[in-house]
């Protein structure tokens, strides 16, 4: 091994990250090169100092800050529609059960969701207000449902009936079903792993990165023998619309297949990609 290459590889050698061939060549060079030997000793010394001093204790207030924030209620993307619909339906049912002359102010005390009751009680005339209130305070699904609830109220003439009639209940459940369909998707199908050259490739439906709520499109590589995680790469990007529920935007992988030294990936929309395993670069294939 050349002296220059040896010096460049000393750090990786120290970390045990050189392939066996290069490691042997470097060790052979080290036996006859005092300069590289000194350099290696210096790198070891620097590494020891870094190990000794680099860590700082985390502030005690960090735990309190994290868990105080965490206690604020947060619904997962999959539960949001159910929670929203339950609150809205409860508000609507309470409204339908009230006598005609019941003042609507009382409703805001009866239900958990602050905007659902006014939306139902005030009818179509104020549905835009309620939808806007939801848009400010809650999710888009809530806002959409508030708008729909207003329409339902105007259909029944804006007057509060004394009881829920079968026809109305059916309309309500149909409405709820329609809204739920719009705000959720089925779980992605299991994709069989593919193994090649000592590596096992797996479709990562759930990205190990919660910064973006939109999942899908990643492939993970593991050591086939030990199962050790090696790397993860995003094969395709998914355009993210902040106004839509994250789960309905997800485009998951449906198939992995080996094509020579490359991995062919098919997504739920029928798009195909070819991932070069060594460079981890993916190209979209023509349809």
């Amino acid at each position: 091994m050349e002296h220059k290459t040896c010096r460049e590889n000393l750090s990786a050698y120290l970390d045990g990250e050189l392939p066996p061939g290069e490691r042997l060549a470097l060790e052979s060079h080290l036996t006859g090169c005092a300069e590289c030997g000194r350099e290696l000793a210096e790198l070891k010394r620097v590494s020891a100092i870094v190990k000794k001093h680099l860590m700082e204790p985390e502030p005690l207030s960090l735990r309190a800050a994290v868990f105080a924030k965490k206690r604020e209620p947060v619904f997962s993307a999959w539960l949001k529609p159910a929670a929203v619909l339950s609150a809205a339906a409860a508000g609507l049912l309470i409204f339908l059960n009230l006598p005609k002359h019941q003042p609507s102010e009382g409703l805001s005390c009866s239900v958990g969701s602050p905007a659902a009751a006014p939306a139902a009680a005030r009818g179509a005339g104020e549905k835009r207000y309620a939808a806007a209130a939801f848009a400010r305070k809650g999710t888009l699904a809530q806002a959409k449902f508030a708008g729909a609830a207003g329409s339902f109220s105007s259909f029944s003439g804006g007057a509060a009936p004394a009881a829920v009639f079968p026809g109305e209940a059916t309309s309500l459940s149909a409405l709820a079903g329609k809204a739920a369909d719009k705000a959720k998707r089925a779980a992605p199908a299991e994709v069989p792993d593919v193994t090649a050259d000592g590596l096992r490739f797996s479709a990562a439906h759930w990205r190990e990165n919660a910064v973006s709520p939109v999942n899908g499109g990643s492939v993970r590589a593991f050591d086939a023998r030990s199962g050790k995680f090696l790397w993860e790469t995003r094969v395709y990007q998914i355009a993210e619309d902040a106004d839509e529920e994250a789960d309905v935007q997800q485009v998951h992988i449906t198939e992995l297949a080996l094509k020579g030294k490359k991995l062919e990936i098919t997504d739920e929309r029928g798009n195909r990609y070819l991932l070069d395993i060594s460079t981890r670069k993916a190209d979209k294939l023509p349809r």
Binding site: L62, V66, K69, K70, V74, S76, W206, E208, A210, N215
Partner: peptide, 11 residues
Amino acid sequence: FIKALRGLPGL
């Protein structure tokens, strides 16, 4: 941590 704890059920 706040982001991670929100995503923890999906891990």
